[in-house]
């Protein structure tokens, strides 16, 4: 075999390797999910969804867990959405090139890299203890809001940047003030993109476990929460609790819980992707 042939062979081998690598992760994930479905599907029932947790695996359900997840999701949205979008607007539209804004940006990129369990320690120290919120939904939601803030800020800025500067110019030239331009032109034009980013960030919050365990999302909560100051647990924490029990029946419960959690995560991501595509096709200038 001469050199050229050898090189061509290498090329072909790598191509095969590339295809394998690309689909390896996806295939493994598919196998995992298949396994989960196989194990947990039998447990999925109306009763499972509507039952309180119990010492007995067969009577145990995820009612308090998903109620807690919904509460946390709503509170986290209410806190992180305005904060994150506001900060994104500030940095993208008002920020000038000076040391303060450079510092803000470096800080945000740093926060994005802080492990989520550290946010849990922050929430434990500040919200649970210092502000005396206890192991409440509010404390958990505030913690998660800070955790996803960098993600929302970054995606908001990207969406704002995608609005052509010609639109801003046209508005400003009409005598619109800065905020009028942002409110009437830039935000409507970038809203799809912003919403996509926020939903993706929230779907991450829904799956977060470690920071909520640290702020004390109790593993056993006998009642569904009725106010933001109530104690709570969430789906991922409930799953963690079940996984760590030795009995096989609880493992099946965990698998069933995972099916529900994955369902929520995938639906949220699906909505985000749908919105992004719709927004991109509508907003091509």
């Amino acid at each position: 075999m001469n050199r050229a042939q050898k090189n061509r062979l290498k090329d072909k081998v790598f191509k095969g390797l590339g295809i394998t690598a690309t689909f390896l992760g996806i295939v493994i994930l598919a196998i995992f999910i298949g396994f989960i479905l196989y194990q947990g599907m039998e447990r999925i029932s109306w009763e499972f969804v509507m039952s309180l947790p119990s010492r007995f695996a067969e009577q145990s359900g995820i009612y308090t867990a998903w109620m807690g997840t919904v509460w946390v999701l709503v509170c986290t949205t209410l806190i992180s959405f305005p904060l994150g979008v506001g900060a994104g607007i500030y940095l993208e539209e008002y920020g000038k090139k000076n040391w303060w804004n450079t510092f803000l940006e470096i800080n945000i990129s740093n926060l994005a890299g802080v492990p989520s369990v550290i946010y849990g320690l922050l929430g434990l120290g500040v919200f649970v203890r210092m502000m005396k919120m206890g192991n409440s939904i509010l404390a958990g939601s505030l913690t998660l809001s800070l955790l996803i803030l960098p993600v929302i800020i970054v995606s908001t800025r990207e969406a704002l940047r995608a609005v052509p500067s010609t639109i801003k110019e046209a508005s400003v030239a009409m005598g619109a003030s800065k905020w009028q331009t942002i409110w009437h032109q830039i935000l409507p034009a970038s809203f799809g993109g912003i919403l996509t980013g926020v939903i993706l960030a929230l779907s991450r919050a829904v799956g977060e476990t470690a920071p909520l365990i640290v702020v004390g999302a109790l593993v056993y909560v006998p009642f569904a929460p009725t106010s933001p100051l109530d104690e709570f647990t969430v789906l991922p924490v409930q799953i963690f609790n079940w996984v760590t029990r030795p009995q096989q029946e609880f493992v099946i419960n965990a698998a069933a819980g995972i099916i529900v959690l994955l369902g929520i995560t995938f639906v949220m991501n699906g909505i985000a992707v749908y919105l992004r595509n719709k927004w991109q096709s509508k907003m091509n200038w």
Partner: peptide, 22 residues
């Protein structure tokens, strides 16, 4: 401007924009 830059709104709202922001 050099390149036509209507807002991504209706024809009517484009023309009405200046009045509305006033």
């Amino acid at each position: 401007f050099q390149k036509p830059n209507p807002f991504p709104k209706s024809i009517y709202e484009n023309v009405a924009y200046g009045l509305r922001i006033q």
